[in-house]
């Protein structure tokens, strides 16, 4: 029996809900994977997964000769054992040969969390270095020590930021989900907000680097020159502005994600029959 496309969509939605991803992203990937030559094989494996997903007593099988009247059921959570490690999940995915879908899915989650951790650590170091800069400006006590700590923090922030950028390129090179054209308006809004936020965050990060470098170079001579101050101040203001814009787009992204989730949730519901809507057959 060849698996129906709607069944695959149901599995994709369940997986998406389980992994807290926007459903449309997974649906795009699933629909894309339908064009693969090994579709039937992958379909068989997903069908096996589907049997586990369905509640007892329900079956996707249709009686022979009867017209298909499949309606996607209300989705339910596909529980993943939290004790199960990522390696085990990938291994399990390889065993069940849904690797093209499942393992990439898990790997992308790992890359994303790595990127987030790297950028968070970089931001923390940058904030601490900024505090050190202000302390250095306001008081002359332990100036050398603070400058040394600032240098270390700056190095850590730069390295961590570069690791984050590396993860970002890794996601890009993997060509996972986000390069596809969005199918719905909500999804395109979500992708636009996300992309714009990332661009502003990168500009902010590099402005911060310029600001810190300029400050450190100008502070080496013992006194702050006008040129050093102006460059450092301008870059710092630009970094702050870009961070503010990124925060705005982060809010927008959150709202768009809610809309996407609501939309896919409505898609999964059985159709609602309106009392007054009547179609008379000829």
């Amino acid at each position: 029996m060849i698996l129906q496309a709607k069944d695959i969509e149901l599995v994709a939605r369940n997986l998406a809900i389980a992994r807290e991803y926007p459903d449309d992203i997974v649906l795009n990937y699933t629909i894309k994977s339908l064009a693969r030559s090994d579709y039937k094989m992958v379909g068989r494996d997903i069908e096996n997964e589907l049997q586990e997903l369905r509640p007892a007593g329900q079956s996707s099988k249709r009686e022979s000769g009867e017209e298909s009247s499949f309606r996607p059921e209300r989705t339910f959570r596909f529980t993943i054992d939290s004790d199960e490690s990522q390696d085990k999940l990938i291994k399990r995915a390889k065993i069940s040969r849904v690797a093209s879908f499942w393992a990439v899915y898990v790997a992308s989650g790992t890359i994303r969390s790595g990127k987030r951790m790297a950028f968070n650590f970089s931001s923390l170091c940058a904030t601490l270095a900024l505090t050190g800069m202000f302390v250095c400006l306001l008081s002359d006590v332990n100036k050398a020590l603070i400058l040394v700590i600032n240098h270390i923090l700056l190095t850590l922030a730069a390295v961590s930021g570069l690791v984050g950028v590396l993860f970002l390129f890794k996601i890009r090179s993997a060509n996972l989900f986000f390069d596809e054209a969005a199918t719905t308006a909500e999804m395109s809004a979500y992708l636009l907000a996300r992309k714009t936020k990332n661009v502003w965050l990168i500009i902010s990060f590099f402005s911060l680097l310029v600001s810190f470098s300029s400050f450190c170079i100008s502070a080496q001579s013992g006194h702050l020159s006008v040129r050093g101050f102006v460059v450092s101040y301008g870059a710092l203001v630009l970094a702050l502005e870009c961070a503010l814009i990124a925060a705005l787009f982060q809010l927008k992204q959150g709202v768009a994600l809610e809309k996407v989730k609501r939309m896919t949730d409505q898609m999964c519901r059985p159709p609602i029959y309106h009392e007054n809507a009547v179609v008379v057959r000829a």
Partner: peptide, 22 residues
Amino acid sequence: IDASLSSNEDLKDKPKPSQRRT
């Protein structure tokens, strides 16, 4: 982004042809 988010707002309440009862 706002325009994209509000484009489907008006269509949501209307029943689709596939959702109509015969």
